[in-house]
Amino acid sequence: MTDLSPPPPEVLPESAAAPPDHTAGVEGRPEPHKAGMVCFLVSEAAFFSTLIMAYVIFLRHGSAGPTPDEALSLPLVLGNTACLLASSATVHLAERSLRKGNVGAFRLLWAATILLGVLFLVGTAVEWRGLIRDHGLTIGVNLFGTTYYTLVGFHAFHVTLGVLALAAVLGVSARGLLPGTAPLPVTLVGWYWHFVDVVWVVVFLVVYVLGR
């Protein structure tokens, strides 16, 4: 927490390292953006908990139409999961390279994270195409379709947001606007990305392992 304590109020920082802060910082208090990200992730966790709960409640409540056992297949999803787990590793390694001052490695690993995230999204798209074309599973067919597309769709939406955020950070970094060894955007987007991965692990376990 010592990396970026805001400057005292009277100082007008023109140096790019100073965050645009208008408040007097006090030693030992949590860094505001980090605390804010933690709060945001808590609210996201509450949101996903609700969707997961709805999925579990309606599991095996289906009347007509495909069931999870018939429709879901593991191989493609395992690949997807591997992509996302690997991306968590790359984002971690990217942060570590940056902390060591290796900006080149940081950008490479960060770009790899983006690529893995896009691969996950493509994998999801392929999976959905199969579900719709081969199994006739849409959101309106039965309760499984309703809850499945809502839960997995919202997760994919969050992955999309994450990919955009990662790309934005990469763009900013490429323009040389990310000074220091642990700039806040990198840390915060990294946390968000780990969170999305953890949510996927839970979704994977609930939907593809326990729920089949």
Binding site: L12, E14, S15, A16, A17, A18, P19, P20, D21, H22, A168, V172, L177
Partner: peptide, 13 residues
């Protein structure tokens, strides 16, 4: 909005 978060852009004296 995000552009204003870049250092030096979103603040004034």
């Amino acid at each position: 909005w995000l552009a204003e978060l870049l250092p030096g852009r979103g603040t004034e004296a």
